[in-house]
Design a protein around this nucleic acid. Structure first.
Lengths: 228, 228
DNA sequence: TCAAAAGTGTTCATCTTACACCCATGG
DNA sequence: CCATGGGTGTAAGATGAACACTTTTGA
């Protein structure tokens, strides 16, 4: 037992993990195995330990509950409405993560907890205020994409320009002109054209591209302007 | 005394209050009257109470320590490095606020605590990791100004276009062309030209403008694109 | 040979940038 | 009458938006 002079709220982290699955943006949820909201789907997360930084907590909980590690993770917002947890006052620091779902999907599924990817258009009802958190994360992603490159975290190592365009269309929720999109991303100078093409497609195979990590990181810092 | 099964970090809010004083962006600090860092300058803030939302805590502490209330306040970031407070693990949710310093300056100064405005170029050494928090707030403000109008919170009710331009120059830390700036802000459609002019200036008096609150709030939501 | 997606340029309108002089006022 | 900042327009270049057809490939 730990004693304090004044009452303290509990502190958790929760994480919204976005993954790209073909043409579909998905989010990773776990099914709760304890009260409250037992059996409901929720964002992965858990209590902060004393002596642990918030980032470390988010990463630890994510790995414990979903097996994901070494991924892009960024703080989103902190939520502290006293009634957001029916047990007591719990404050949560929310994060969001971006992963390449093809590489990370199996791990999540084989973990002890019941974890699964859900399409954003087909979400179950969520525990606590996790629906609100998810909505904020989605907005944040939509905002981020306008001033920073994001493809690196969500796409496989080699990808086609059409895949990259689909990613932007999904995040921004709007159609983009193919020619204008290509002109724009190529002018950013972060793409390296490989001499490989798609395999096993029933039509003309598209050329594969990679990101140039140095240029990519530079643009992450200095910012881009990617309007529609 | 309050008892918990597991150890809990303490939880605080801290607030970076920016105020515009003529041609100078300032920040409101308080001088600590208790250990640790007694006598050092710090951001206003304090412990979250159980049952109180984070926003409410930030507003309450701000009013208690500086007298400021009913101001623009937005969550910035949460800091939780275990060693950021020498006493124990304290997690803080940082906010930033924008105020019109001319209207708010006296209140802050007359409060019981020793509170004062400091120019950003002439800061004292700060307690805890408050220097880091302040730096992040400054960056955030610089980012915010590019996609949302900000003048309303920082300027007096009626202001000249030159004042507005100075504000942008201070936040963005760069010179802006007068004619291009005027074209740009006028095209935004959030300014109302009054039929008043500056008083008591030793040169031609500038016309005073106001913000159109409805258009302003609309642009806050839909976003603007204010590059340099 | 058909279906499906890849790949590719031009035009027009808009926006951005650079730039300099006269005006009104108070001291 | 002078010092100080207020106020104003244009031209050239860059950028953004709209738009359609040919090519490649596998089935």
């Amino acid at each position: 037992m730990y004693q304090y002079k004044y009452a303290r709220p509990a502190l958790t982290t929760d994480c919204v993990v976005f993954g790209l699955d073909q043409d579909d943006l998905k989010v990773l949820l776990i099914q709760r195995d304890i009260q409250p909201f037992e059996g409901k789907w929720a964002l992965p997360g858990g209590f902060i330990q004393v002596g642990e930084s918030i980032d470390d907590c988010a990463r630890r909980e994510l790995e414990e509950e979903t097996g994901l590690h070494d991924i892009f993770l960024e703080q989103l917002y902190s939520y502290g409405q006293p009634d957001r947890d029916p047990r007591e006052h719990v404050i949560t620091v929310a994060y969001y993560a971006l992963v390449n779902l093809i590489e990370h999907a199996p791990k999540a599924a084989t973990d002890a907890r019941n974890a699964a990817w859900f399409s954003l258009d087909d979400l179950p009802s969520l525990a606590f205020d996790h629906q609100t958190i998810l909505e904020t994360a989605r907005q944040r992603l939509r905002g981020k994409v306008r001033y920073q490159p994001v493809g690196f975290e969500l796409l496989p190592e080699k990808f086609t320009l059409t895949q990259l365009q689909k990613l932007y269309e999904i995040i921004l929720e709007q159609k983009i002109d193919k020619r204008n999109f290509r002109k724009k991303v190529i002018k950013l100078g972060i793409l390296i054209e490989t001499d490989e093409v798609e395999q096993d497609v029933a039509h003309r195979a598209a050329r594969l591209y990679q990101f140039d990590p140095a240029h990519y990181q530079q643009l992450e810092k200095q910012g881009i302007n990617f309007e529609l």
